[in-house]
Design a protein around this nucleic acid. Sequence first.
DNA 1: CTTTGCACCTGTTGGC
DNA 2: TGCCAACAGGTGCAAA
Length: 271
Amino acid sequence: MPELPEVETTRRGIAAHVIGRRVTQVCVRQAALRWPVAPDLSETLAGQVIREVGRRGKYLLLGFDHGTLLVHLGMSGNLRLVPGALAPMTHDHVDWLLDDGQALRLNDPRRFGAVLWTAGPVGQHPLLKELGPEPLSEAFSAAYLHARARNRRVAIKSLLMDAHVVVGVGNIYANEALFMAGIHPARAAGHIALARYERLVEAVRQVLNEAITAGGTTLRDFVGSDGRPGYFAQQLRVYGRAEAPCRTCDSPIRHLRQGQRSSYFCPRCQR
DNA sequence: CTTTGCACCTGTTGGC
DNA sequence: TGCCAACAGGTGCAAA
């Protein structure tokens, strides 16, 4: 589910409500997420104040004085603010009860998400250490992408979705950005000129910003921290639009399988 | 080192 | 209505 815009929507939605709040208790109903949730998480966090809510790629970072909690939403997760007494629904795996009676509640049907505590410098965490630059930062440039693509035969779409190259770009936005840049998703990354990477970098930035503005993309079950869906789905240019007319040239959008992921592209606009 | 494919898990959808 | 296969927003890891 969540790519960068959905995680950022969640971050913005919870930040003002939880910063400065004290965690009174953590209730773990299902510890078997992608990695087991630490059994002593409640002892670790009880009485501690949430100082900041950050994001690195698709990881949400809850900053405390003595460490950081990494929260990943996986494919189907969402994090909502609810009244602490609200009865849990199925797949409501973790609650962070706060000192104002509210609770942060993690719901994740597929359980690909993660909740991990780290006491050390968060940037040194094994899962974060090797990540590529943020797509909305200066470090993500055409020169950088071009250099990373040098001598690589992988499809450009795979490269774009590789978090070690750039974080936050998942299947939906990779498809959208390649359409906007006029690049065929299966083109070998090493066979794309610098000028075309300029277009691609701009397209990635534009589509992510548009999606953040719309509150993310809800295909099935994504909801922000207030329980409302994102509205970017209606602005999708190619994703999920197989056989539908290209919004630019009317050619039927084509579907393709790359790896285990669905790709959508316009055979006329993308080369 | 690069590339490919699997694994993790539940739920929905479409074909027969 | 039931059953089964395919597919879904991610990504670490093993194997080739």
